[in-house]
Design a protein around this nucleic acid. Structure first.
Lengths: 364, 364
DNA sequence: TTGTAGGCGTTATCAA
DNA sequence: TTGATAACGCCTACAA
C-alpha cells in the first residue's frame, strides 16, 4: 500500500497539518519544517491520494469533452489540442461521444459535479436543457462556429461561456479569394439541416446568390460525393464548389476527379477546417484553418477561470480564421496571389460581453 | 447540495447500511426494506457520490488510453470504439497522448491506482519499465500488431494481456492478392525503425525478396510521399508499393499521381488500417481492416476480467484481419476476383496462453 | 508558526 | 436480515 500523509508526518516528526501545508504550498511554513517534510515525502515515495482529495475538495480534476463523434479529423484535432492544453492546467480529459443522441449529451452534462469538474461541448446542443449556467462552479464551455447562437426552442445557452470560430469572417475571406480568381458561379455545399452550424449559414450569407445544397444525414465524404454530382446536375456551368467542411470537400474532390472534371481548371473547391488530409490530396485543398491549439487554449482559460471562482458574466471569444490557399483554387503554379499554404493574416481575437480576455495569450 | 445516503436512510426509516445494501444489490435484503429505500431514493433524487465511493473502493471507474497521438485516423477510430465499449462496462476513458515521449507513457502507467483503474496502451512501449504485471488489480492491456512481441532490452511485457492484430496473416493475404493480379516487383514502405511495429516486419517476411524502405521519423503522409519517390528511384521497374499504414499509402498515392504514374496501371498500392479516407481517394485504397469494434470489445473484456479479480496467466488474443480490395490494386473495373470492398472472410480469433476467451462474443 | 479534532459520503466489519 | 461504528486519506476551522 502506498504511504499516507499521516506516515509522512510521523516520519518527519511534524503534524499532519504541516504536511498538508507543505504539500499545498501554503505560505506560513518554516523552511525547517518544509525541508523535513519534503525529505520524508521523498524517502517514503508518498504521492497524494486523488480520491481522498476529490472527496474533500469536491473536484476530480477531470473534464469531459462532449462531441458527436471522435472519428472526424476536426474532432480529433480539437481533442488532441484540448488534452495537451488541459495537462498544463493539471486537468485530464475524458471523451464522451454522443453519437448524435441528445440523451447522451444530457447525461454528460448532468455528470458535472459528480464526475466532471467541467464540460466542454462541441456541436449542437439539445433543446430542453436545464439552466446550465446555474452552477458556475461546474462550468460548461461551448465551442462553435460563430453566428450559430440560435439553438432552437428551449435551448439554454445564454449564460454560457463560448469560444467561437469566426465563420463569418472566414466566409467573407473565401468569397474575396474566389472573386480574385474570377469565380462567380458558386454552389455552397453545406452541412445537414439543424446541425447548429454557423459555417453553412455564414457561407450562405457571403455567397448570397449561390444555391446551398445540404446532405440529408451526416456531412461526411460520401455526402460530399453525392452533393457534388447533384450540384453539377443542377448548375452545369458552376465554376466553384464551396464546402462547409473539409470532409465534404474531399468527397467533392473525389467525385469531380471521378467525373473527369479539372480542379481548379473547371471547378474550384474549398473546404473548412484544415485537416491534415487536405495537404495530401491531388490537388491539395484550399481551406480555413481553425487553429485548434489557440482554440484549446482559450477554452481552457475559460474553464480554469470559472473553476477558480470567476463569476463574471458569460464571455464569448471569437477566434479569427486563417484561409489557407492551395491548389484546389490556385492550381499547380499558384496563379494569382499567394503560393501553397499562403494564408491571410489572422484577424484580431474578439471578446464578447463580459470581462476582457487575458492579454498576451492570443498568439501561439 | 445533493442528498447523502444518510438522508435517504433516515427518510426510509432504515440504517445507513441497509441503503448501501440496496444500492449495491447485495443479496440479503428484505423486499420490504428494498422498496422503502428505493422510494426514498426516488423522492430525494439521490445519486451516489463518485468521489466518496472511489475513496472507499479505491476504484475511479476511469481507464486511460495511452497512445502516441490522437490525430491519426486509426488512433481516433480505436479511441471512439474503446470509449463506446467502455461505457457499457460502466467505465470512462481518459485520453493520454504521449507525443512519442517515453516519460509521458511512464507517467500514465504510474498513475494506475492513483487515478486510473487500468491503462490500455497503444504503440511502442518504452524500455526500462517497472514490472507492469506486478499489480494485476490495476491491469495494463497492450494493443499491438501481432509478432511484435519483442520490445527491446529492458522491456517488460511478459506478464501482460494483449490484443494483437494478426499482421502476419494480413501480410500473407496481401501477398496472395498481389500475386493474383500478377505483381511481383514489390517495394515495402514501412514504419520508422523501432516503432515496435509488427506490420512492417510481417510485410517484410511475406514479401521476402522485396526491399523495405522506412522513414526517418513519423510514418505519416509526408513520409509516404517521400518514400514513394525514393522507391521509384531505387526500383524503377516496381509494380507495387505495399505500405505499413494507410497514412503512408495515401502519401504514396499523392506522390504517384503527382509524378503522373498510373495506379494501379503501372503501380499498385496497398495500405493498412482501413481508415475512412481510403474510400474517398482516387483511386480508392486497398487495405487491411483492423476491426476497431471487435478490438475494443476484446480489450475491455480483458480489462473487466482483471478488475474483477481474474488472476490467471496473461492472455494474448490475436484478431483476424480482413483485407479490403479496392481500386488501388483492382482498378476501376475490378479486374480479377472481388469487387470494391470485397473482403476475405476473417479468420478465427486465436487466443494465446492462459484461459480461453469467453465464447459467443467474437462476432459483433 | 504549528497542532488537534472533525468531517467529506461511502462501504465493510461484526455483533445483535 | 439488520444496525451501530469504524475506516478510507485528505483538508481546514479553530485553538494553542
Amino acid at each position: 500500500m502506498s504511504p499516507t500523509m499521516r506516515e509522512v508526518a510521523s516520519r518527519a516528526g511534524v503534524s499532519l497539518k504541516s504536511v498538508s501545508r507543505v504539500v499545498n504550498g501554503h505560505p506560513n511554513t518554516s523552511a525547517e519544517v518544509r525541508a523535513r517534510v519534503e525529505a520524508a515525502i521523498a524517502e517514503l515515495g508518498w504521492s497524494p491520494n486523488t480520491h481522498a482529495r476529490s472527496l474533500r475538495t469536491g473536484r476530480s480534476g477531470l473534464i469531459a469533452l462532449s462531441l458527436p463523434d471522435l472519428r472526424t479529423s476536426s474532432a480529433s484535432q480539437l481533442a488532441q489540442a484540448l488534452v495537451t492544453e488541459a495537462e498544463r492546467q493539471g486537468l485530464r480529459v475524458a471523451i464522451e461521444p454522443s453519437h448524435g443522441e441528445a440523451a447522451r449529451v444530457r447525461r454528460t452534462l448532468d455528470a458535472r459535479g459528480a464526475v466532471f469538474d467541467a464540460v466542454v461541448h462541441l456541436g449542437p446542443l439539445p433543446a430542453d436543457l436545464p439552466d446550465l449556467a446555474a452552477d458556475p462552479g461546474h462550468p460548461v464551455v461551448l465551442v462553435r462556429a460563430a453566428e450559430s447562437l440560435d439553438t432552437g426552442p428551449g435551448g439554454r445557452t445564454e449564460g454560457l461561456d463560448s469560444v467561437d470560430i469566426d465563420a463569418v469572417a472566414a466566409a467573407e475571406e473565401i468569397h474575396r479569394h474566389l472573386r480574385i480568381i474570377a469565380r462567380s458561379r458558386v454552389v455552397v455545399i453545406g452541412r445537414e439541416e439543424g446541425a447548429a452550424d454557423g459555417v453553412t449559414s455564414a457561407l450562405g450569407a457571403a455567397f448570397s446568390s449561390a444555391p446551398v445544397l445540404r446532405p440529408d444525414r451526416d456531412a461526411d465524404r460520401a455526402a460530399g460525393r453525392e452533393l457534388a454530382a447533384r450540384a453539377l446536375a443542377r448548375v452545369p456551368e458552376a465554376d466553384a464548389l464551396v464546402c462547409a467542411s473539409d470532409e465534404l470537400a474531399l468527397g467533392v474532390l473525389s467525385q469531380l476527379l471521378a467525373q473527369g472534371i479539372a480542379v481548379p481548371g473547371q471547378v474550384a473547391v474549398t473546404g473548412h477546417g484544415n485537416i491534415d488530409d487536405g495537404q495530401f490530396t491531388t490537388p491539395t485543398l484550399t481551406t480555413a484553418d481553425l487553429g485548434a491549439a489557440a482554440l484549446a487554449r482559450h477554452v481552457l482559460d475559460l474553464v480554469r477561470a470559472r473553476l477558480d471562482g470567476d463569476r463574471s458574466p458569460a464571455r464569448r471569444i471569437v477566434l479569427p480564421v486563417r484561409v489557407v490557399r492551395r491548389e484546389s483554387t490556385l492550381g499547380r503554379d499558384g496563379i494569382g496571389a499567394g503560393a501553397d499554404d499562403a494564408a491571410t493574416a489572422p484577424g484580431p481575437v474578439r471578446t464578447g460581453p463580459g470581462a476582457e480576455h487575458p492579454a498576451g495569450k492570443a498568439a501561439p
